[in-house]
Design a binder for these strands. Sequence first.
DNA 1: AAACAAACCTGTGCGC
DNA 2: TGCGCACAGGTTTGTT
Length: 280
Amino acid sequence: MPELPEVETVRRGLEQRFVGRRIERVEVGRERTVRRTSRLAVIDGLTGATAVAAQRKGKYLICPLDTGDSMMIHLRMSGRVLIEPTASPRLAHTHVVLHLGGSPHEELRFVDPRTFGEVVVYAPDNAAVEMPELARLGIDPIADGLSRAQVATLVRGRSRQLKAMLLDQSVIAGIGNIYADEILHAARLRHDRLSDSLKPAEITRLHHAIGAILRAAIEAGGSTLRDTQYVDTAGQGGWFQVSHRVYDREGQPCLTCGRSVIHKVVAVGRSTSFCPRCQK
DNA sequence: AAACAAACCTGTGCGC
DNA sequence: TGCGCACAGGTTTGTT
């Protein structure tokens, strides 16, 4: 599912192929995708506008517009942003279409089978009211940078299970289930270790793992799993899944030590995979 | 403060 | 082969 590396890959696609192109016409199919505001608000807010940048905060995509408003897109679990030729057939569950100016004739398509995703047009000056969750986001390890000292502060300031802490967007923004498991494996730490129990060397490993895993995943264009349909704006999948060392590898040998990878459902009902030998 | 559950959806993959 | 059902997951909200 789209987490920081996947969303960052989409952001780069928007930067290259969406920013600077006037939105000539807007179609909103399913109202649920624009439930935050309304069909009319999104059509009015985007028609004639041009995105001046493509930004990312955690898993949120934000495009400031030349009108002064901003467009927010969240992919949630099954959302996709595709930029495709106007003449090409649209996928099922295409809920929002932005016809782009210039050539070639292309349109931005928001596709989302499970309809958890959102497209919002809001006024940045009023973000505290219209997009309150943005203000609650914690540090983005890539966009903001995350120092070892900051990680030390985060883990010492609370007594939480590490996986729950990594998944908490108000602590660190952008990590989801896949990268939480991969980061913890790389750091050789169990998901249920309490944050305030980490020794200095373990904090160092956690800090390093967060940056290393996320950067490698971005480099690989994210993870495309067999059951998910994550693709970038050009419709291409990522390939970081071939580098997963524990996620979705239940019963297979740990690539570090050979011990069978364990799978269990932990807090928040999230499936979790880890190596019982490498991770302590 | 932290853990836990439920809710929102629908395509997929499994067991029978 | 066909059917039904558990499952997947990001985030918010409410409860323990």
